[in-house]
Design a protein around this nucleic acid. Structure first.
Length: 225
DNA sequence: GACCAGGCACATC
DNA sequence: GATGTGCATGGT
């Protein structure tokens, strides 16, 4: 019987061999990555790209400038990303925090300890655990494992966690307690799980061609969130 | 036309 | 504490 760590590493290597490096996060600056993390909530990345392109074309990939924009214009620019009224507020909440406490400069976050930063992010309305952890890992290079619905589906299907045990922190703990805190590993692993989820582990999965098909695999388990 | 997408806050019981 | 619902665009 393999250990949990060995099972996780099997999954990681099968996905990496099949898909190759995913080069996450798409985004050029920490601030752009943070905006993307909020905009992609329950939304496909292709829609988020349009919204970010609009912000970029308007020269607004800067916290202080974005913070000064009026809400109606912000809503219009991010409209393609969906939930545009909610997300405009969430972006505003984020820039308020960043501008008021850190002069609108993501570099000023480097001096803050990861746990403290996570708590501050979670205190912002509209930033939940996945968004906070995405910002920590992908924008700020902190060794925090990001989990999402795809991660949940893959882990349930391969029996690493029971469906009734599913909650964010337990799922996250499955990775962090079995793997060394390694930013490049956490980055690639999460991106690969999303890729596998997009291609194969959907609500109605297509498991036959999935790179993980050779592993112990429970087709009878509901591929739930 | 139905389903799905890299969540989260809030209401209600 | 658990469960249900609103939020919205765009691709398949």
């Amino acid at each position: 019987m393999k250990t949990t760590r060995e099972q996780l590493l099997d999954i990681y290597h099968l996905l990496l061999d099949a898909f190759g490096p995913q080069h996450w996060w798409p985004g050029e600056t920490p601030f752009e990555i943070a905006l993307g993390a909020i905009l992609t909530q329950n939304t496909s990345w292709s829609n988020v790209e349009r919204a970010i392109a609009n912000l970029k074309a308007a020269g607004l990939l800067d916290a202080n400038r974005l913070h000064a924009l009026d809400m109606e214009q912000l809503e219009t620019l991010i409209r393609p990303a969906g939930y545009f009224r909610v997300k405009a507020k969430r972006l505003r909440n984020f820039t308020t925090w960043l501008c008021d406490r850190y002069e609108g400069d993501m570099q000023n976050l480097e001096a803050v300890a990861t746990n403290r930063l996570r708590e501050e992010l979670l205190a912002i309305s509209g930033i939940g655990p996945e968004t906070a952890d995405s910002i920590l890992l992908y924008a700020l290079n902190r060794p925090v494992f990001v989990v999402d619905t795809y991660t949940a589906r893959v882990m349930v299907r391969h029996g690493l966690i029971a469906p009734e045990e599913l909650d964010y922190s337990r799922l996250q703990d499955l990775f962090t307690s079995n793997l060394e805190p390694d930013v490049p590993l956490f980055n690639e692993f999460h991106a690969l799980l999303v890729r596998a989820g997009k291609d194969y582990c959907k609500p109605r999965p297509k498991c036959e061609a999935c790179p993980l098909a050779p592993l112990p695999h429970r087709i009878d388990v509901e591929c739930a969130d």
